[in-house]
Amino acid sequence: MTVFRILLALSGIGFAAYGIDLLLQMNTTDLKSIATWFIGGILAENLIYGPAAAVVGLLGHHLLPARWWKASAIGAICTLSLLLLAVPVLGRANAVPGNHTILDRNYPAGLALSLLTVWVAVAVYLFMTRPHRVAARPVATAPPKVPPVPPEVPPAPPQPAEPSGQQRE
């Protein structure tokens, strides 16, 4: 296990060095754009995603049955993640009118299909894990009345043994 961890750490350091090298080769305009998206992502996570997740969690806790909490929390996290990932492409229709290769797909339809897939998966999970209902048991009736059994007469106490050597007449 230690060898695996060392190899994992070395590969992580190598990938980080490669990424830093690529960043250092970029021009200032690209670096500013990367910094803006990096800072914007941190701010969006702390100012939008975190509070929205907390509000949705509290509402779900009060409005949904307890059995639904875990599945709906996972669905809500996936929904918020998909919405945040879609922000850059949803609001940029015709950002570059002369270049038709940018934003060449129907991103709102793709987002809607993705969200539908998430919530159908949540519904299927809830359906598959629903508690099974047991058929109602018949109402128990009182046991039949049986006449009481008379108490047993205790057996007579044993007679003391006669000493040997004496005969009975």
Rank of each mutant, 00 (worst) to 15 (best):
S11N: 09
Q166T: 04
L85H: 08
H62M: 11
N27I: 00
V124T: 12
P160V: 11
N94Y: 04
A142H: 14
A93N: 10
P154H: 03
I48Q: 06
V139A: 12
N106L: 07
F15T: 14
I102E: 11
R92K: 06
R137E: 14
A156G: 05
H132F: 14
P151D: 06
V3G: 03
I20F: 15
V3T: 12
P155N: 15
L85T: 07
I13Q: 00
F4L: 15
L7T: 07
S11F: 07
F15N: 11
E162T: 07
I77E: 11
L111T: 06
S164Q: 05
P155A: 15
H132Q: 15
I102Y: 08
V124Y: 01
S81A: 13
P143D: 05
I13W: 03
L90N: 08
G110A: 14
A35Y: 03
N99Y: 10
I34R: 06
L63W: 12
A35F: 11
V120A: 09
L111G: 01
T101L: 11
R92T: 06
L63N: 07
G14W: 01
W69S: 10
L22P: 00
L8V: 04
L63R: 03
G165F: 06
L116A: 08
K32Y: 00
G75D: 02
V149G: 14
W69Q: 11
T2G: 05
N46L: 13
T2S: 08
R130Q: 13
Q167I: 14
V149D: 11
T129G: 05
P151R: 14
A135R: 14
A52P: 07
P157V: 12
L103Q: 01
R92Q: 10
P157E: 14
P155K: 12
A161G: 14
D104M: 00
L85Q: 11
P147Q: 10
T101N: 10
A123S: 13
R130M: 02
R168V: 09
P51H: 04
Y107G: 02
V96E: 03
I6E: 13
V118I: 06
G98T: 13
P154F: 03
M128Y: 07
Y125E: 05
L22A: 10
V146W: 09
P108R: 10
G110F: 02
G12M: 01
C78M: 05
I13G: 00
Q166A: 11
P88K: 13
F15D: 05
A136R: 09
W69Y: 09
M1I: 09
A17I: 01
N27S: 00
L47P: 05
I42G: 08
L7H: 07
F127Y: 10
Q159F: 08
L10V: 05
I34Y: 10
L63D: 01
F15V: 13
G110N: 10
V87H: 04
L59F: 15
P138L: 01
A35C: 05
V55K: 06
Q159H: 02
W69F: 13
A71R: 03
G41S: 15
G110P: 03
V134H: 11
L84G: 09
P147R: 13
A136D: 12
I77F: 09
V120P: 03
G41A: 15
